[in-house]
Protein backbone atom coordinates (compact mmCIF):
# COMPACT_ATOMS: atom_id res chain seq x y z
CA UNK A 1 0.00 0.00 0.00
CA UNK A 2 2.77 2.36 1.05
CA UNK A 3 4.55 1.60 -2.16
CA UNK A 4 1.50 2.55 -4.17
CA UNK A 5 1.15 5.90 -2.45
CA UNK A 6 4.76 6.64 -3.07
CA UNK A 7 4.27 5.87 -6.74
CA UNK A 8 1.32 8.22 -6.99
CA UNK A 9 3.30 11.02 -5.39
CA UNK A 10 6.13 10.35 -7.75
CA UNK A 11 3.76 10.45 -10.72
CA UNK A 12 2.41 13.82 -9.80
CA UNK A 13 5.81 15.25 -8.99
CA UNK A 14 7.16 14.06 -12.29
CA UNK A 15 4.35 15.33 -14.45
CA UNK A 16 5.74 12.49 -16.45
CA UNK A 17 3.42 9.73 -17.55
CA UNK A 18 4.79 7.49 -14.84
CA UNK A 19 6.56 4.26 -15.29
CA UNK A 20 3.87 1.63 -14.73
CA UNK A 21 5.52 -0.97 -12.58
CA UNK A 22 8.95 -1.58 -11.25
CA UNK A 23 9.85 -4.51 -13.45
CA UNK A 24 12.94 -5.26 -11.35
CA UNK A 25 10.70 -6.68 -8.67
CA UNK A 26 8.96 -9.46 -10.64
CA UNK A 27 12.27 -10.32 -12.35
CA UNK A 28 13.92 -10.47 -8.95
CA UNK A 29 11.23 -12.66 -7.40
CA UNK A 30 11.00 -15.03 -10.36
CA UNK A 31 14.73 -15.71 -10.49
CA UNK A 32 15.11 -15.89 -6.71
CA UNK A 33 12.37 -18.51 -6.75
CA UNK A 34 13.94 -20.49 -9.64
CA UNK A 35 17.40 -20.22 -8.09
CA UNK A 36 16.20 -21.47 -4.71
CA UNK A 37 14.40 -24.45 -6.26
CA UNK A 38 17.49 -25.41 -8.27
CA UNK A 39 19.87 -25.04 -5.31
CA UNK A 40 17.67 -27.14 -3.03
CA UNK A 41 17.13 -29.77 -5.71
CA UNK A 42 20.87 -29.78 -6.40
CA UNK A 43 21.62 -30.36 -2.72
CA UNK A 44 19.13 -33.22 -2.52
CA UNK A 45 20.12 -35.10 -5.67
CA UNK A 46 22.98 -37.54 -6.00
CA UNK A 47 25.70 -37.99 -8.58
CA UNK A 48 23.68 -40.29 -10.84
CA UNK A 49 21.51 -37.39 -12.10
CA UNK A 50 24.59 -35.56 -13.35
CA UNK A 51 26.17 -38.01 -15.75
CA UNK A 52 24.55 -35.97 -18.54
CA UNK A 53 26.15 -32.76 -17.37
CA UNK A 54 29.67 -34.25 -17.36
CA UNK A 55 29.56 -35.01 -13.63
CA UNK A 56 28.98 -31.40 -12.66
CA UNK A 57 26.14 -30.68 -10.24
CA UNK A 58 24.76 -28.09 -12.61
CA UNK A 59 21.56 -27.57 -10.65
CA UNK A 60 23.47 -26.48 -7.55
CA UNK A 61 26.05 -24.38 -9.40
CA UNK A 62 23.78 -22.69 -11.90
CA UNK A 63 21.05 -22.41 -9.28
CA UNK A 64 23.42 -20.26 -7.23
CA UNK A 65 24.13 -18.06 -10.24
CA UNK A 66 20.42 -17.59 -10.83
CA UNK A 67 19.72 -16.99 -7.17
CA UNK A 68 22.40 -14.29 -7.06
CA UNK A 69 20.96 -12.74 -10.21
CA UNK A 70 17.47 -12.65 -8.67
CA UNK A 71 18.73 -11.19 -5.40
CA UNK A 72 20.63 -8.44 -7.24
CA UNK A 73 17.42 -7.38 -8.95
CA UNK A 74 15.51 -7.39 -5.67
CA UNK A 75 18.28 -5.32 -4.10
CA UNK A 76 18.23 -2.83 -6.98
CA UNK A 77 14.49 -2.41 -6.71
CA UNK A 78 14.83 -1.97 -2.91
CA UNK A 79 17.49 0.70 -3.33
CA UNK A 80 15.46 2.52 -5.95
CA UNK A 81 12.39 2.49 -3.73
CA UNK A 82 14.33 4.21 -0.99
CA UNK A 83 16.42 6.64 -2.94
CA UNK A 84 14.22 8.68 -5.23
CA UNK A 85 15.07 8.23 -8.85
CA UNK A 86 17.11 11.22 -9.91
CA UNK A 87 17.29 10.45 -13.60
CA UNK A 88 15.11 13.44 -14.52
Amino acid sequence: MENKNKENVKEQADKNKGHFLDLKKPIGWLFTYCGLILVIYGLLTGKELYTKSLGININLLWGMVILTFGLIFLLLSYIQKNVEDDSH
Partner: peptide
Protein backbone atom coordinates in the same frame (compact mmCIF):
# COMPACT_ATOMS: atom_id res chain seq x y z
CA UNK B 1 18.37 -33.38 -23.94
CA UNK B 2 22.03 -34.41 -24.13
CA UNK B 3 23.40 -32.11 -21.42
CA UNK B 4 20.65 -30.94 -19.11
CA UNK B 5 19.40 -32.98 -16.14
CA UNK B 6 15.97 -32.35 -14.64
CA UNK B 7 15.86 -29.04 -12.84
CA UNK B 8 18.02 -26.99 -15.14
CA UNK B 9 16.13 -28.66 -18.00
CA UNK B 10 12.92 -27.10 -16.72
CA UNK B 11 14.57 -23.70 -16.80
Amino acid sequence: AHYLPNGILGL
